[in-house]
Design a protein around this nucleic acid. Structure first.
Lengths: 148, 148
DNA sequence: TATTGTTATACTCTATAACTATA
DNA sequence: TATAGTTATAGAGTATAACAATA
């Protein structure tokens, strides 16, 4: 197994951990959303209005699905539909203030590092962050962090 | 953001990438399994017989679900049910030879590192593998790799 | 005629409850 | 009486096809 493969295999193990899966489920519970609608919430950026159709592409799902996902986000007031005057067929989705806060809450929860990462020395943590940041910077297409 | 948080955020970005999600979907397609039954396949170890009930605990799902998942694995001949003579209520699940091969195929596919990790220098790759292996070794409960 | 979003519908995944066969 | 696995059934997620409004 190459070093890159070994490194990636370790990351996969971290993601499969009950610790991370638990945080994911916990974040969904806290916001009262399902896994699907929470993913939709995560993909809506603050101060950005996105057509339903575009959101379907981002989520890689059918447009008919997005209707129900946005319904689920509107229900607790996390998002709202806005008409686009220039093309009245299009509806834009945007986060409300409450939705932005919910999104931040979810992201903060998901970003809590597994305990074994926190157990590394400060020096090792810094080195790990440096190497992974370097890898991400080289990604094409670019990979975005939730909190840039 | 701490270094551990930054490192973890980078890993999350790698997992959300189309590249990885595509490999996951591709592995499912190649084996003719759904995401759910593929996860069941991954959690069956070669040369090991596990009661249905235990598999349900590992997968963190209801036992009734496992009946259908194992049905899905038996259909293409990836696994088979074996009776436990000592307690005739219990049915053990075990991989067939074909199932072991399918499992290896899936794991190899999932373990293909994202291109941007392969783009790091050999030295950086080695350092990354070293740091992540160190973190995993410190995990409690232990985190297992698919290919130990 | 083509496109956006919606609705109606069907299929899959998962859980709950009732059932069977063992213990 | 309790437990392992199954079956029947219902709820949620997602896709396809048909539809209304707009371009």
């Amino acid at each position: 197994m190459s070093d890159a493969e070994r490194a990636w295999a370790c990351m996969i193990a971290l993601f499969r951990s009950d610790e991370h899966l638990g945080r994911f489920a916990g974040a969904a519970r806290e916001t009262g959303l399902t896994a699907a609608s929470m993913k939709a919430l995560l993909n809506l950026l603050p101060d950005e209005e996105v057509p339903m159709r575009t959101l379907a592409e981002v989520l890689q799902c059918d447009a008919s699905n997005v209707t129900q996902l946005v319904d689920a986000l509107e229900e607790p007031g996390y998002a709202e539909r806005v008409s686009l005057p220039a093309d009245r067929r299009v509806k834009l989705v945007r986060l409300t203030e409450v939705g932005e806060k919910a999104r931040t809450t979810v992201i903060d929860k998901l970003h809590e590092p597994p305990a074994c990462l926190n157990a590394l020395t400060k020096r090792d943590q810094a080195e790990l962050a440096r190497l992974l940041s370097k890898a991400l910077a080289a990604a094409d297409p670019p990979l975005d962090l939730y909190h840039p």
